[in-house]
Design a protein around this nucleic acid. Structure first.
Length: 127
DNA sequence: ACGCTGACTATTA
DNA sequence: CTAATAGCCAGCG
């Protein structure tokens, strides 16, 4: 019976696991988690993969919410189109992002990824 | 409900 | 070359 009516207080569809199903953020996290190890991508590339032009800002916003998500979202693999660790400031430690990238054999100097285009992973092309 | 901010990007001066 | 501005969309006070 329809006794259990969730009252449409929230139009957001939320799964029993507590995760929103149709959320822009969730889409971003999904793509980021698909980024192969040792590769990096840019906010604009993810936005374009979602079909949202110039939605790079929203991608960065999604990353902010990815903190504490499960499974872990490799936000350290997401940088701006210049290959700069623009979001390193938002990590638990500003050096954590570089540490993780170097751990994946990615050279980072002065918050700049060396051979960025060589490590660049385009979701539109790879997917 | 309005306005501001923001892990971006592209263009113009 | 660098600096500044506009466009973009969604969350938050």
């Amino acid at each position: 019976m329809k006794g259990s009516k969730p009252h449409k207080t929230s139009l957001k569809k939320v799964l029993p696991s507590g995760q929103p199903e149709n959320d822009f953020f969730n889409q971003v996290w999904d793509i980021v988690r698909q980024v192969p190890k040792g590769r990096v991508t840019s906010y604009g590339a993810i936005a374009a993969a979602l079909g949202v032009k110039s939605g790079a800002r929203m991608v960065g916003w999604a990353m902010n919410s990815s903190h504490g998500q499960t499974p872990t979202v490799p936000a350290h693999r997401v940088v701006n189109r210049l290959g700069q660790l623009s979001g390193k400031n938002h990590f638990p430690s500003p050096t954590r992002m570089q540490e993780l990238l170097e751990k994946e054999k990615i050279r980072v100097i002065n918050d700049q990824i060396i051979d960025f285009e060589k490590h660049f992973w385009d979701p539109l092309k790879e997917l």
